[in-house]
Design a protein around this nucleic acid. Structure first.
Length: 383
DNA sequence: AAAATCATCAACCGCCAGATG
DNA sequence: CCATCTGGCGGTTGATGATTT
């Protein structure tokens, strides 16, 4: 039949998104929310196909995206999840709030694969290369790769993986969840494979700790090094998705005279709360800090924190020489984890406890387009 | 300094499944 | 049932910047 992409059919724009397009899409979605993607381009005034808009929003513009380097904990989790799920990037991404399937996929293909190979581990089977080669030859034609779930290593290492269940409680897969031959117990597999599994990082974390404690009480093998990794990770994810974080969301403000700092929180995965702190100054530090790839989401919740953020060169949208919009939001906590000046999670949590959030819905949004290339690019401008 | 190579990642492509008429 | 539309997914490509030769 020869399928033409919708973009080709309608002579729509393709390729990289311009700041103007980003602005239009961002404005539209923040005002009207995500609905029917096919109608978004028309309504938002974009010469793109709906698919392209969807992808752009999901992979780039969504305000809850983490950006920056993957932490060691995230890396470990991706590897362990990939071992169980294979290339089901979307399902892996569910376990890493703030990360997109595309991002994880790229990270896997560009880094993790090579890392495993260097360690002599087959990235497909997660088995030592020699063993994997022999077995792969035997079984390669027997079943689709996506259905091949390597268990031997999981089994022998007694690694437990936290899995979301449809009831909202995490399911801990430990040795007890496997049959003797290493296959997953059917219930566990069903739940794990279910697309309905929805992660609530907060309850996830709480429940995870509970289960870990229970398993410890019962003398069950809990986890190896993944335990701390996962706990830490959920700690971070909880931070990233459930609390009140101040993030900056503006371009580098080339002639900046105003910086809008936004406090964002999500409330039980439903409504978002965003408050804005307007810093009406001539803060050239922001400009200087955002020379390249430096658009970060700031994690501080207080004005003091915001100042600190400035001092840490951690904030700001960035526009490069070609006036290209750098990633709108970047989760600074991850990117700057090696920074001595970055706050610890505990400190940040303390900030969160001492500074309330303001209901986002009470703040009208103004157009992003008022002055895109220069001053006062306030994503959420508090009028 | 220039060319070649490598690494990264945003975006596209094509397939699939579910919804709808 | 069938055709069409739509959203979601994984694989792949190509542009770009960084690094090496």
């Amino acid at each position: 039949m020869g399928r033409n992409s919708s973009c080709v059919k309608q002579k729509l724009r393709k390729g990289l998104w311009s700041p103007d397009e980003d602005e239009k899409l961002f404005n539209y979605i923040t005002r009207f929310g995500v609905g029917c993607w096919s109608s978004v381009p028309k309504l938002a005034g974009l010469q793109r196909c709906g698919k392209s808009c969807r992808l752009r929003w999901i992979n780039y513009l969504r305000p809850d995206l983490k950006r920056g380097m993957f932490s060691q904990q995230e890396e470990d989790l991706i590897i362990s999840l990939h071992e169980v799920l294979g290339n089901r990037w979307a399902q892996i991404a569910v376990q890493l709030p703030g990360r997109t399937d595309n991002e994880i996929k790229n990270f896997w293909n560009s880094c993790l694969k090579k890392k495993l190979l260097k360690q002599g581990i087959d990235p497909t089977t997660h088995k030592p290369l020699n063993e994997a080669n022999v077995k792969e030859e035997k079984t390669s034609m027997e079943s689709p790769q996506s259905m091949q779930i390597p268990f031997s290593q999981v089994h022998s290492a007694t690694i437990s993986t936290v899995l979301p269940s449809s009831q909202g409680s995490p399911l801990l897969i430990s040795d007890s969840n496997y049959y003797d031959d290493g296959r997953l117990a059917e219930t566990s597999r069903e739940i794990f494979m279910s697309k309905q599994a929805i992660l609530d990082p907060l309850s996830y974390y709480d429940n995870f700790q509970m289960i870990v404690e229970q398993n410890s009480d019962y003398g069950l093998p809990v986890t190896t090094n993944y335990q701390t990794s996962i706990i830490t990770l959920f700690d971070q994810n909880q931070f990233a998705t459930n609390s009140n974080y101040c993030f900056s969301s503006m371009p580098s403000l080339t002639n900046s005279d105003r910086v809008s700092l936004t406090e964002f929180s999500s409330d039980n995965n439903s409504g978002s709360k965003i408050s804005s702190l307007l810093m009406n100054d001539n803060n050239n530090q922001v400009k200087e800090s955002s020379s390249n790839n430096s658009s970060n989401m700031c994690i501080y919740t207080s004005e003091e924190g915001c100042h600190q953020m400035m001092e840490n060169n951690a904030a700001g949208f960035s526009w490069d020489a070609e006036n290209k919009l750098d990633p709108l939001f970047e989760f600074n906590a991850i990117k700057s984890e090696d920074s001595k000046t970055s706050n610890s999670w505990e400190e940040v949590q303390h900030h969160l406890q001492t500074h309330g959030s303001i209901d986002f819905s009470s703040y009208p949004l103004t157009s992003l387009s008022e002055n895109l290339t220069g001053t006062s690019f306030d994503v959420f401008q508090h009028i």
